[in-house]
């Protein structure tokens, strides 16, 4: 499916890349916009790697982001950033790996609300840990400038996009497709269902962990309630639904849409922005189940 639409994918990538490069070269406003765009692309591509592929909708992806942010903030000025940011990804991945077995036994709507509840649980546990340590927030003085962070974020967005694209075409991706369609049938034709789900779940947490670390540096302070904000999880799902989770272009389209809408409206009226976002989500679920990416190839057909 991706093969047949190489051109649009290239065009979308080029457009998003152009915007980000523009952000690198110009003043801080565009840098921040580009940083946000790259962040949402990185997060949603990673989410798609698990939820889009397997159909297990995670409403708690912020947990990886938050753990990553915590690792970077906790080790700030102790561990150099070139090490702490990858460590953030590793920590998020390890956490996902640790909880994957019990969490992935749960299916359907139970899974959706479980992932949400788990993220909130981790949030409140860390909140109490931080309070116990006497740190209601951590200031990160001397964090790199947004320009530098944008480079890293663009790298993460590109890595997440390439990863999703590669998984789609791989044997691993075929296995995940089958799991989404019918788990019992999948294991009966030899697919090690549990192992594949666990791997995809853990893999989908790594880049969000690093993204969280970078975003902690970006805001120059760390507060548990801020980095574990469930709105981040919700926004990821919204981008994926609006853009379409079917292939690697969807999240890019969705992120472009979201960042565009937010730049036009968020400052003028955050409420109207969110109302429109909610309406778009409803509209997509009802009328555009394949998302914006579905508009690109209305031919339909199977994968």
């Amino acid at each position: 499916m991706i093969r047949a639409h190489g051109l649009p994918l290239a065009a979308i990538l080029a457009g998003a890349a152009a915007l980000m490069v523009f952000g690198l070269g110009s003043g801080s406003y565009w840098t921040i916009v580009a940083l946000n765009l790259a962040m949402w692309i990185a997060l949603t591509q990673s989410w798609s790697l698990f939820s889009g592929m397997t159909g297990y909708i995670s409403l708690g992806h912020v947990v990886a982001y938050g753990i990553g942010a915590y690792v970077v903030a906790f080790s700030f000025k102790i561990v150099p950033l070139w090490l702490s940011i990858p460590l953030a990804g590793v920590a998020a991945g390890l956490f996902a790996l640790m909880v994957a077995l019990p969490v992935l036994r749960v299916r359907g709507p139970y899974f959706v609300i479980l992932t949400f509840g788990l993220a909130e649980l981790v949030k409140y546990i860390l909140l109490n840990v931080e309070t116990g340590l006497g740190k209601s927030s951590r200031l990160l003085f001397g964090a790199p400038k947004p320009d530098t962070l944008l480079w890293i974020m663009v790298g993460l967005a590109a890595a997440a996009t390439v990863a999703l694209y590669a998984v789609h075409r791989s044997r691993f991706g075929r296995g995940l497709d089958a799991i989404r369609e019918d788990e019992t049938a999948a294991e009966t034709i030899g697919i090690p269902v549990v192992r594949l789900k666990v791997l995809a779940y853990a893999a989908s947490a790594v880049i969000p962990g690093m993204v969280g670390g970078v975003m902690a540096l970006r805001s120059t302070y760390f507060e548990v309630l801020q980095v574990f904000n469930p709105t981040i999880s919700f926004t990821i799902v919204t981008i994926a639904i609006i853009g379409g989770a079917g292939d690697a272009r969807g999240p890019i389209l969705g992120a472009l849409f979201l960042v565009g809408l937010s730049e036009v409206l968020q400052n003028a009226s955050p409420q109207i922005y969110l109302i429109l976002l909610g309406l778009c989500l409803i509209g997509c679920v009802l009328f555009l189940p394949t998302g914006l990416v579905g508009l690109l190839h209305r031919k339909g057909g199977a994968r």
């Binding site: 075929r174 089958a178 030899g190 090690p192 199977a302």
Partner: peptide, 19 residues
């Protein structure tokens, strides 16, 4: 219980890849 959203070929391909 075929994989309803996958093509007929992809159904069989997946079995070959994993089975």
């Amino acid at each position: 219980r075929p994989f309803p959203g996958l093509s007929v070929r992809r159904n069989v391909e997946t079995a070959i890849l994993y089975g």
